[in-house]
């Protein structure tokens, strides 16, 4: 029995890009040769700066982005779904099993639908329930699991605060009883007190419904608190991956170290200086050759030998993978 729910093997995602209609067509590699196993019932965090390819990878796993090369396999109980070569019928089935929670609960909910209709819509579109009674029952069940007040189901989204809206949005994603959830910056738009509430809800739902999460976030302290495993992305590559505790106590890659040191400490006396990365993430259109991090790496050698290094993860301790260039220089 395979204990992975999703296996990602050497996946690349490319987009076509043309600056204007006269210029040459170019390819942008948003995700490059990424391999990732997502264990059943795990809470996997995916972190990185904007432009690192987190969302693109998440969408590729959901079959919402075309996969240019490589393989994404979703292991369901009886069938395996091969996302790179999936037909329409299989994709419909797959959508019931894998869902997405969005970032902004203000934009994700239609203002013209009642909460009940918003949550019920996926059931109707996927033709999961047979009758209105059955639909209502499913909606009530998931709404109470997401700690929504059942009397609120007849109201419209404008009557709700950000935290309540995010709960509605979560209920909608979970109503088809999926196994796998991609949560893309799902708490980034919320105030801290509400953020804590939603994170606790996601955790408790994981136990109730046997969910597996891919949790995409740029906030490392949130990821440290909720995820059991973390992968760090930079410019389309995974540069480090480890169990949460291990990654946050013993980071190896210089990029991970810089990210961790950049989190402002809540202790005013803790004036540790952030490892300042000069400049910003390079454009994906023109990524550095060799180690992609070399242009900002504080340890890059002056002769630029990192330009000739091939990227690839090596296991430094059980379950802790680091890009080979980062192991040596950090």
């Amino acid at each position: 029995m395979n204990d992975n729910l999703v296996s990602v093997k050497n996946v690349s995602v490319e987009f076509d890009y043309q600056e204007n209609f006269l210029s040459k067509k170019q390819k942008i590699q948003a995700v490059k040769n990424v391999s990732l196993d997502i264990k059943k019932k795990s809470f996997l965090g995916l972190v990185g700066e904007s432009g690192s390819g987190k969302t693109t990878l998440g969408k590729a796993i959901l079959g919402a982005n075309k996969i240019s090369s490589g393989q994404v396999i979703f292991h369901d109980e009886h069938t395996d779904y091969d996302l790179a070569n999936i037909n329409k019928k299989e994709l419909k089935e797959f959508r019931k099993k894998a869902q997405l929670i969005f970032q902004d609960p203000y934009a994700a909910l239609s203002p013209r639908m009642t909460v009940r209709d918003i949550i019920a819509e996926p059931l109707e579109v996927m033709k999961i329930t047979k009758s209105r009674e059955e639909t209502d029952e499913r909606v009530r069940d998931i709404a109470s699991k997401c700690r929504l007040n059942l009397e609120h189901l007849r109201r419209y989204p404008h009557a709700f605060s950000g935290g309540q809206r995010q709960r509605i949005s979560i209920a909608r994603s979970l109503v088809s009883y999926p196994k796998f959830i991609v949560a893309d910056e799902s708490v980034a738009a919320l105030d801290v007190s509400i953020q804590a509430d939603i994170l606790n809800l996601l955790k408790s739902l994981q136990k109730d419904l046997d969910l597996t999460y891919l949790f995409i976030s740029h906030d490392l302290s949130v990821v440290a608190h909720t995820c059991d495993e973390v992968a760090v992305m930079y410019l389309g590559h995974i540069v480090e991956q480890a169990p949460s505790r291990e990654l946050f106590t013993n980071p190896r890659h210089p990029y991970t170290k810089a990210l961790l040191s950049s989190i402002p400490s809540i202790d005013p006396d803790d004036q540790k200086k952030a490892i300042e990365l000069t400049g910003e993430i390079p454009s994906a259109m023109n990524p550095p050759s060799g180690c992609v991090f070399r242009t900002r790496c504080p340890h890059a050698s002056p002769d630029g030998k990192e330009a000739g290094i091939k990227m690839g993860l090596v296991e430094v301790s059980p379950g802790h993978w680091v890009d080979q260039c980062g192991v040596n220089c950090g």
Partner: peptide, 17 residues
């Protein structure tokens, strides 16, 4: 507010909304 904040130096503290 302080209890709701995830603290990177204290991963065992539960988040309290």
């Amino acid at each position: 507010l302080l209890k709701a904040l995830p603290d990177i130096n204290n991963l065992d503290a539960p988040l309290q909304p």
